[in-house]
């Protein structure tokens, strides 16, 4: 990292405050759409922290995958389940919230003291920073991490197939002897949905 020390500290502080504020907004705001957009803020500030940690490739991958794919996927899910419902009050719920807050604060205090007390064996000299992290990560991927790298592709394929099967409309046709529906090899075995009304009503189904 060839930035000055002061610049690093100031930008790190700004990114940390931004990350914590947006994370609290994700958890505490009542509107779920605001939470989803603030989640993008969390991901972008974490990407900035990665750049401060000399990891440019992972920072770019963080923005591409999290902000570009996961956040958009969450927004699509919010649109698909867009049902403004008021949750019924449960008696004694504030006790649950309070106790969870106490437990999380205690966990944070425990982790903080552990981090600050432990003598980390860092060599105080400035570490030799790798110039080209992409080349180094590529070497790792194709030499000693080759098997996990290939398994990741299989995992992504399985996740894609599983997501499509789970989110498909009707897995089992309710009446097997249906009228003649032309099934080719390109159509999924699901019930053909009735046509959306051509005139007015739109966006009714789920």
């Amino acid at each position: 990292m060839n930035l000055a020390e002061g610049v690093q500290i100031v930008s790190g502080g700004i990114l940390a405050v931004m990350m914590l504020a947006t994370a609290l907004g994700v958890v505490l705001l009542s509107n779920i759409v605001y939470s989803a957009f603030l989640l993008g803020g969390v991901f972008i500030s974490i990407s900035g922290l990665y750049i401060l940690l000399n990891a440019d490739f992972v920072a770019a991958a963080q923005i591409l995958i999290y902000v570009g794919a996961v956040n958009v996927l969450i927004l699509f899910a919010i649109m698909l389940v867009n049902k403004r419902e008021d949750f019924k009050d449960i008696p004694g719920r504030w006790i649950r919230n309070l106790s969870t807050g106490v437990v999380c604060g205690g966990l944070f205090a425990l982790l903080g003291t552990m981090i600050l007390v432990t003598p980390w064996s860092i060599n105080s000299t400035s570490p030799a920073v790798i110039e080209n992290t992409i080349v180094e990560i590529g070497k790792h991927f194709f030499s000693d991490f080759l098997l996990p790298f290939e398994l990741a592709s299989v995992l992504l394929l399985m996740a894609m197939v599983g997501a499509i099967i789970l989110a498909r409309r009707d897995l089992i046709p309710e009446a097997m002897p249906r009228e003649e529906t032309i099934t080719t090899s390109l159509t999924l075995p699901e019930r053909p949905r009735e046509l959306a009304s051509l005139g007015g009503g739109s966006g009714e189904e789920s």
């Binding site: 992972v58 999290y66 996961v70 996927l73 992504l156 789970l166 989110a167």
Partner: peptide
């Protein structure tokens, strides 16, 4: 960083499957 890339991969797969389950 290599481990982080793997965790990002698994997180993306988890998000897709989780949202499909919620749907």
């Amino acid at each position: 960083q290599v481990f982080t890339v793997f965790v990002i991969t698994v997180a993306a797969a988890e998000a897709a499957v989780g949202l499909a389950i919620i749907l």
